[in-house]
């Protein structure tokens, strides 16, 4: 199994029981999925949970991968769905937590859980801190569009298909997200000073 083998080759080999092919496939994408998770959830623990769930989903559905779309697109579709699920779960947990503590609802969403983790060295880099701060300002549905557009370089049509929305909705979400993330000079300065 060569490092340069295509995803489809690796999928076929993994389906035939090649552990090496499976390992290569995971190694090829785990970093991207982990970083996607980090950007969506804002913390390493949830990002790792998401990564594991995504690859578990890939493993469970590998036989269903027919190669109609590229493996990468298929993988990000799974990641997208898992991120939505994780968000829903966290929302519920946050809701349950707030009900337990105060007996009242709290508007729980991933954005509310995005907190910087000062001790996590690599995530601490200023550029990542700023990106996370910007992403925190937008809701998950917009964050997903931004993620897929900016980091995964998907077209609006691919994003729309993945999210089962219209192309115009995808564009609007992206545009609205950019407007919400508009850099305010004071904020920018403050972030860099920290």
């Amino acid at each position: 199994m060569r490092v340069s083998d295509s995803d489809e080759k690796l999928v076929t080999a993994a389906l035939q029981g090649s552990g090496r092919a499976w390992r290569r496939l995971v190694q090829r994408y785990e970093g991207r999925i982990y970083n996607l998770g980090y950007r969506l959830t804002g913390n390493g623990e949830d990002a790792m949970d998401l990564t594991q769930e995504v690859f578990l989903g890939v493993f469970r559905n590998l036989r269903r991968f027919r190669g109609d779309a590229s493996f990468r697109t298929w993988l990000f579709r799974i990641a997208h769905n898992k991120a939505v699920d994780l968000n829903r779960r966290n929302k519920l947990q946050s809701l349950m937590g707030s009900l337990d503590e105060a007996g009242e609802f709290a508007a729980g969403e991933l954005s509310a859980r995005v907190e910087f983790e000062p001790d996590h060295g690599l995530a601490e880099r200023e550029c990542n801190r700023l990106a996370l701060e910007l992403l925190r300002r937008i809701p998950l549905e917009q964050r997903l569009v931004v993620e897929l557009k900016i980091y995964q370089s998907l077209t609006f049509e691919e994003i729309a298909r993945m999210q089962e929305i219209s192309v115009n909705t995808a564009k609007t979400r992206f545009y609205t997200a950019l407007k919400k993330m508009r850099l305010i000079p004071e904020e920018e300065n403050a972030l860099f000073e920290n």
């Binding site: 785990e30 970093g31 999925i33 982990y34 970083n35 980090y38 950007r39 390493g44 790792m48 990564t51 690599l122 995530a123 880099r125 550029c127 990542n128 700023l130 990106a131 910007l134 992403l135 931004v146 900016i150 980091y151 950019l178 993330m181 508009r182 850099l183």
Partner: peptide, 14 residues
């Protein structure tokens, strides 16, 4: 923001 987001430095997965 697009410029800032693109400056993201990849974090290696644990």
């Amino acid at each position: 923001p697009v410029h800032e987001l693109r400056r993201w430095e990849e974090i290696p997965a644990p």
